[in-house]
């Protein structure tokens, strides 16, 4: 029983079939990649997994539970974490605050009465926990900086950190390397690898950067025009002729 089982996910938008019976598995602790040309439907698929879009057909089973109809925030509580292709940060908050609020949301203990009595300040434990994650991501020096002062690369890492605070079993990363240069991408990969090792998080990665994908994931799915055209180990898939033609062109 895989950690995440998506079966026959379909989504149509006014005449365009964005996803057509896409099925995908992710085992616990496993890094999996999802690649495909632009417009293949990768982000749409992610949105269906996360619950931002409701699929027209198919189901999503996570950790044995059918979550197809579950609202977004509840899925997050079950153990999904996500970063976004177009970076989604909380303006006006510091770096550490991003992680702190995620920690609170994960624990789900929001009480207006406690707030009103000022009993909801960040505890030392929470701060330590956040700092530990920041350290893992190399962001500790920026903990108190407002998020607006962070560049894209750092912002991505903050997103990862934020997602990690919810102790996800599965991290969905949507094109994390977009906008990053070579150096930043390598750093990101290193960080992700250590995250995966230390915390045993499964990762589902949507990516354009084939090299990054190669260095990181063990299995790969390929999406083209809303359909899965290949799946298997990284080596198998990248060697497959159909994939190369559809995605990589004639590039060898």
């Amino acid at each position: 029983m895989a950690l995440l089982e998506a079966r026959d996910i379909s989504k149509r938008f006014a005449g365009i079939t964005a996803l057509d019976d896409v099925s995908l598995d992710v085992e616990a602790g496993e890094p999996v990649g999802l690649i495909g040309p632009n417009g293949a439907g990768k982000t749409t698929f992610f949105n269906c997994l996360l619950g931002l879009l409701r699929p027209d057909g198919g189901r999503v089973v996570f950790d044995g539970r059918n979550i197809t109809r579950m609202p977004v925030y509840k899925r997050a509580r079950l153990g999904f974490g996500r970063t976004f292709q177009r970076i989604e940060l909380f303006s006006g908050m510091t770096v550490r605050d991003h992680l702190l609020v995620a920690e609170r949301a994960h624990r789900g203990t929001a009480s207006l009465w406690k707030d009103m009595l000022n009993l909801s300040r960040a505890t030392t434990e929470e701060i330590e926990k956040a700092d530990a994650t920041l350290e893992l991501l190399g962001l500790l020096d920026y903990a108190n900086r407002p998020i607006e002062s962070c560049g894209l690369g750092r912002g991505r890492l903050v997103e990862v950190g934020r997602a990690l605070m919810t102790e996800p079993k599965l991290l969905l990363l949507d094109e994390p390397s977009s906008g990053l240069d070579r150096v930043e991408t390598e750093e990101l990969v290193t960080t992700l690898q250590s995250v995966q090792r230390e915390r045993g998080t499964a990762i589902l990665l949507v990516e354009h950067d084939v090299e990054m994908v190669q260095s990181f994931v063990s299995r790969l799915y390929v999406l083209d025009f809303g359909t899965l055209i290949a799946s298997g180990t990284t080596a198998e898939v990248l060697g497959d002729a159909t994939v190369r033609k559809a995605y990589l062109g004639e590039y060898v």
Partner: peptide, 23 residues
């Protein structure tokens, strides 16, 4: 400054991301 306030800050910053962390 409390939890609800933080949630609301997050929702204002990005509703999608806030939901994605469980708010």
């Amino acid at each position: 400054g409390g939890t609800i306030g933080r949630y609301l800050d997050a929702l204002r910053g990005s509703e999608t991301a806030a939901q994605a962390i469980g708010v």
